[in-house]
Design a binder for these strands. Structure first.
Lengths: 159, 159
DNA sequence: TCAGTTAGTTCCAATTTAGAACCCATGGTG
DNA sequence: CACCATGGGTTCTAAATTGGAACTAACTGA
């Protein structure tokens, strides 16, 4: 299977990664959440080639994650802004950052701190069950296949 | 900048993605959380080439996310298990899955349902502030640079 | 007229991937 | 013994993608 065909798998993780799982794309999104909007700013901050950046921004725009908006006429110049679909990826970025802070930081500690404006404390993100309010870990979850895919996704020894 | 050098950036997201941000790697981890442990099972489920799978499993093992454990001798056979460092990536996978469920599902709906064993309800994951207990969205967060990187990471018009 | 800004596109060499075949240690079967 | 199967890879080649640099387009301001 080619990487470009993974969006046809019956798996929401695969379909998500078909849009944002490319090398560089999640770093583009990281910068979006830091307020970066313009081509050259992305290019300088990321150090990615202009060709690849152009391709990734196009895919994110086609995928509905970014909106390409003209911020001036004559000459027309565009900037890229997160849509609400894009903003909903924030938990993914935050958990990636927090995991990196915990396991991959160097002697200088975490580079950035995220402050929760409402309570003015450093954000310690948790995965949280809306129904019962408890914190959730991998072993607290049981996975079930929905009707149309019964028996087709999981292995029989699902642990 | 080459993709392979991004782990040298002062950014926890970049460092995380240096290990797990490659094409295919997050799909390998998805399967790990579904209980897959053996080379051929990964290979058949993902459809990735054996060469690439071998490379990704090696990088995940070297990165401390998977443990390569012999499950029999004569002939020696290994399986790959999540370490605690690896299990801590669960929130990333869950939020990717939930985002895909919400925005990318087809007519048959979400392929898998995650059930929270403690309360027996479908998991609706939320990003949650440990301190104040509130749900957190992107606009609720202010980002600050830590001492060593003052003025070097953010743009001046940080929004 | 000339330089500067912004957002790309084009070119080529180097790297990575897809797909298939092959390898190795061992175990089971006839 | 010969032969096939299993698990976990490695090797090979062609195709696709990336990195790096230069170039283009459409303006603005001096």
């Amino acid at each position: 299977m080619r990487w470009q065909d993974i969006d046809q798998q019956p798996c929401s993780v695969a379909r998500s990664l078909a849009i944002i799982g490319d090398n560089w794309t999640l770093l583009v999104l990281r910068d979006c959440f830091l307020g970066v909007r313009r081509f050259d700013d992305f290019q300088q901050r990321l150090g990615v080639t202009r060709h690849v950046l152009s391709d990734r921004l196009r895919k994110l725009t086609e995928g509905g994650i970014l909106d390409k908006v003209a911020y001036q006429q004559r000459p027309v110049r565009h900037e890229y802004r997160l849509t609400s679909m894009g903003r909903d990826l924030y938990p993914v970025i935050v958990h990636l950052a927090q995991w990196g802070d915990q396991y991959l930081a160097d002697d200088h500690g975490a580079p950035l701190t995220r402050i929760h404006k409402q309570c003015e404390h450093t954000l310690q993100a948790q995965l949280h069950c809306r129904h019962c309010g408890e914190t959730v870990a991998a072993q607290d979850i049981r996975v079930e296949e929905n009707a149309h895919w019964k028996g087709k996704i999981l292995m029989n020894n699902q642990g």
